[in-house]
Each structure stands twice: as structure tokens, then as C-alpha cells.
Simulated assay, not measured.
Amino acid sequence: MRLMVWVAAITLVIDQLSKWLVVHVMALDTRLAIDVLPPVLNFRMAWNYGVNFGLFGGGSGATRWVLISVALGIVLVVLVWLRRDPPGRMGMAAAGLLVGGAIGNVIDRLLYGAVADFLNMSCCGIDNPFAFNVADIAIFAGAAGLVLAPGRQDGKRLKKGA
């Protein structure tokens, strides 16, 4: 469990530090766009009031609190699951990514009323209109890792190939 806490803490710090630098130091919230390595990497300010790709982003105060509650509920479910059926080191690291990313986006909703998305990547003639952040990457990687990490079965660790 200690590994999960460390990974979550490091993920949270990297996420919040990157958002603070981009929004407050680089003033992306007023500049709106900074080309870093066009078209592969750009900073594009996007305040996400909903979930992925702005879905359910009505911007109401109720939506904000519902999304905060859902994120914290998911974190709680993951923590309970980890206590009951620890998935091993790789699974614990994946859970840390998911938990740290979820808490990072919750902090954004509490501070700004929306999630600060700023990373935009395009390639090969495809112009990606969407932005994301470090927390989003961590949540995706953590969820994928938890799906792929073997758990326990009948109190014993699953063996490779079983």
C-alpha cells in the first residue's frame, strides 16, 4: 500500500506543479496558446467543466460537485479494493497513478471550478482539437494498469500464464 501512496503523491505533485506553471507562470489562461513543438506538442488552454472531452459540461455548480463526488467515490472504491485484494507492485503503482490523477482533477475543480487542460498533441496531418493534462494521462495509465495487473485468486497470487 505504501507504493500506491508514494506513486499517488508524486503524480499529484507533478500534475499540480505542471498546471500551476502553465496557468500562473506562463499565463496560458490569458494567452490561450503556446506552440512548444508544433504540431506534435502545443499548450492550448481548455477549462473542462465536464468529464472526458467536455461531456456533461453544463458548467453548473451542481455538475461540479457531482463530478467531485464521483471522482472521490472512485478513489474510495479503488482503495477498498486494494485492501481486500492487493494486485502486486505493478497494480499498486497503477492504482497510485489513478488515485493521484483523480485527486489532481478534484483539486482543480475545487480551486478553479473546472479542470485545467493544456496539453495538445497532433501528428501526421491529423489536427487534434482536444486538450488534456498530466492527471488525465495518469488516470488512463492507472486504469489500464489495473486491468492488466493480476490480482489474487483464493488468497494466492496468480502465477504467470495461469
Rank of each mutant, 00 (worst) to 15 (best):
M1I: 13
R2P: 02
M4T: 13
M4D: 01
V5K: 07
W6Y: 12
W6H: 02
V7I: 14
A9F: 12
A9Y: 03
I10T: 09
I10V: 15
T11W: 02
L12F: 15
V13M: 03
I14Q: 02
D15I: 00
Q16C: 04
S18K: 04
L21G: 12
H24E: 15
V25D: 09
L28R: 04
D29C: 09
D29K: 15
D29R: 15
L32Q: 10
A33T: 05
A33F: 10
I34E: 02
D35W: 01
L37S: 03
P38E: 00
P38T: 00
F43Q: 08
R44I: 03
W47S: 00
N48Q: 01
Y49C: 02
Y49S: 14
G50M: 03
V51I: 14
N52T: 15
G54V: 00
F56I: 01
F56Y: 04
G58F: 00
G58D: 04
A62L: 03
R64H: 02
L67M: 09
A71Q: 04
G73T: 11
G73C: 11
V75I: 15
V75P: 03
V77Q: 05
V78A: 13
V78F: 10
L79H: 07
L79C: 11
L82N: 12
R83K: 12
R84P: 04
D85P: 08
D85L: 10
D85S: 14
G88N: 06
R89Q: 11
R89T: 10
G91D: 09
M92A: 13
A93L: 13
A94W: 06
G96Q: 05
L98G: 07
L98W: 06
V99W: 04
G101E: 00
G101A: 03
A102I: 07
R109D: 11
R109W: 12
G113Y: 12
G113P: 08
V115N: 11
A116S: 13
D117Q: 09
F118M: 09
N120K: 08
I126C: 08
I126K: 08
D127G: 07
N128H: 11
P129Y: 01
N133G: 05
V134P: 00
A135E: 00
D136I: 13
I139N: 08
I139F: 05
I139H: 12
F140C: 15
V147E: 10
Q153L: 12
D154S: 05
G161S: 03
